[in-house]
Design a protein around this nucleic acid. Structure first.
Lengths: 179, 179
DNA sequence: GTAACCATATGCCACTGTGGAATGTCAAGG
DNA sequence: CCTTGACATTCCACAGTGGCATATGGTTAC
């Protein structure tokens, strides 16, 4: 049926995954992806449109008729389904973390303690908000959540909790103000 | 002194940071970076050499004489120091996480429970090893560590612990085998 | 009604990041 | 001497990012 010219990348494969629910435009896919996988899989509009165009060329998706506002719906083809099935069976690779705040800390001896403390405080605020948001989500719609969505949400909660605990312990490790 | 033609990216800035310790080659910088910031800031050889060439053109570093094995040491210039000082003062951006295993879980309804369980088990193993490694590092040389290095190490430990706790709770959330 | 405004929708570009392949050099051990 | 492996750089294609440009349909305010 479908011979993999080249292996599918995870971003493109995710788009195929979402298209199982029916035809969607790049815009729809972007907003869906942000909500569903955005917390652990970054993507950008440019990338989404680019991958859709490439998958269209490769026959994994098929562009429909352009609607209002240049809205162009893509639908999953049989090749697309096959490519997705192939991808989902592959061993998922290791996670990637890039945290600029940790860079600032690693090079912390070049920074005034108060400045570093300000960075830390600002980030702590962000993580506290995210934790609250996640917990509210679980409290509100947690029971209605598909178990897979509940599992990824739980990851987010545990991650944010760990980061906040780390923040709480930081003052014992670092000079963060002019004591 | 130095007017920023364009803002420095974090990877390039990190190389400047390491060069404060004295002239180093691309290879040296790569291995240093892997050890010191590799756990929260990914980089590749290609990128390191490319950034060094670019910073050389921009006068932020100066290439020395080529030694044995084409070893080319770069040293920090005054412009480079200034650019680094500028960079380190900037508010660090949000962290970036990309975790393919979470993608597999999010699309878990397309996977046989046993297959998903195998993915999970394999990743749990990786995280358990990393946690052990970090803890051994802290136990062995923890006291000798610069506080900034201790702080980033502590982040790694808390992160791995959180992930392992999440793994432990997963069977209650997901169908992971044919019960 | 229509003007102003905003959300929707796509595309382009330059730069950054990734991973593999190619190429060559020195050092050590058999 | 010869093989093997660590060292060292370069090139390339592709993936990912973020900003800018450019529309258009729908809503609101006047």
């Amino acid at each position: 049926m479908w011979v993999p010219d080249r292996p599918l990348n995870a971003t493109a494969a995710s788009l195929l995954g979402f298209l199982h629910a029916g035809p969607m435009t790049g815009w729809d896919l972007m907003t869906t992806a942000e909500v569903v996988i955005g917390d652990f899989w970054s993507l950008t509009r440019s990338q989404v449109y680019r991958e859709l165009a490439a998958m269209d060329r490769d026959g994994l998706v098929a562009a429909g008729e352009t609607g209002p506002r240049d809205r162009r719906p893509y639908s999953l083809t049989e090749s697309g389904r096959a490519a997705f099935r192939e991808w989902i069976e592959r061993e998922p690779g290791p996670e990637q973390i890039r945290y600029p705040l940790l860079l600032a800390i690693a090079f912390g001896r070049h920074l005034a303690p108060a400045r570093l403390a300000a960075f830390v405080a600002s980030h702590r605020q962000v993580h506290a908000s995210r934790l609250e948001e996640y917990q509210a989500l679980r409290a509100d719609v947690g029971d209605a959540l598909e178990p897979f969505a509940a599992a990824t949400l739980d990851f987010g909660i545990r991650y944010e909790q760990a980061v906040l605990e780390w923040f709480a312990g930081l003052p014992d490790l670092l000079p963060l103000d002019e004591d």
